[in-house]
Amino acid sequence: MTKLLEIRDLHTHFFTRDGIAKAVDGVSLSLERGQILGLVGESGSGKSVTGFSILGLVDAPGRVVSGQVLFDGTDLIAGGERLLRTLRGKRIAMIFQDPMMTLNPVLRIDTQMIETVRAHEDVSRDEALRRSREALVSVGISSPDERLETYPHQFSGGMRQRVAIAIALLHKPDLIIADEPTTALDVTIQAQILSEVQALCANSGTALIWITHDLAVVSGLADHLAVMYAGRIIEEGPTRDVIAQPMHPYTKGLIESVPRGKKHGALLSQIKGMTPSLLRLPSGCKFRPRCPRATAACEIEPALDVMDQGRRVRCVHPHTENYPEVLAK
């Protein structure tokens, strides 16, 4: 059986006045049906652009320059806008970061839901409305009939994100790309949304790409993690393994900078320096200037090496001490 999604050597560049920003620079990923992939990285690491590239929603001056996005065996890049439109919202849905901004402020919820149903299926308005109501109920919105007749500004942030998720679920897609959907929400709402999305995906067998900068959020959710830095994937593997034994110094830094409440007053460790500008990337390993392990050998760009246990890492000096014994414990 073909994989649900297979991204091969994707390059998405932004052609700006100051030069070409390679936001996505040779990303390869794959996803099985029903699998949850966590795509982790800082702002500007290219994780969101990767998500938008899949659906062909990269805004000018950005453009997918090369690579393949095989969805169920069909190349979406080659298929172009016509093919993409039939898939968007139907087989691949998307949830955005800011629920305050994703719903059109001047259209009622029912309008925004019904149009989604009718964009792909020739059904009556009543039938579309019935399905919209069902979707709202499935994301835990009570009294859906009243809710359908209101405008987005009458909802709280968490409710709006539920509506956005309901819209994404309308066609029971094979894949949902969620671009930091809980970042703008309260922590309590965040937890609710997380567990609901997890349950919904498990029930319907929907695969999920969860794009986030928050390792803590994704580690409890995803089956598989891919960490991005400066447009490249630098580490990839099963979530449990990556969290237990991060091999790339950057991943290790990320994990160690998550507060764990071990000791009161203890300083949080942090990764020194800043994310480099995509227009002025260092030669060789892009993480080199910030890396505690960097040596002269890092001046040549390392490849994404395949390790044991389905792990991949792009590093000259990976943390492989005691590996894989650590995992056996």
């Binding site: 919202g89 849905a93 955005f96 901004m101 059109n104 001047v106 259209l107 149009e115 989604t116 964009a119």
Partner: peptide, 27 residues
């Protein structure tokens, strides 16, 4: 055009015409 709701409308698979005539024009 730069607003997320326009991108979201496109991500829902709406036709370009509907995005312009309803989502953009009304705003």
């Amino acid at each position: 055009c730069l607003q997320d709701y326009v991108k979201f409308a496109r991500a829902k698979g709406l036709s370009g015409r509907r995005v312009v005539l309803v989502h953009i024009l009304k705003n």
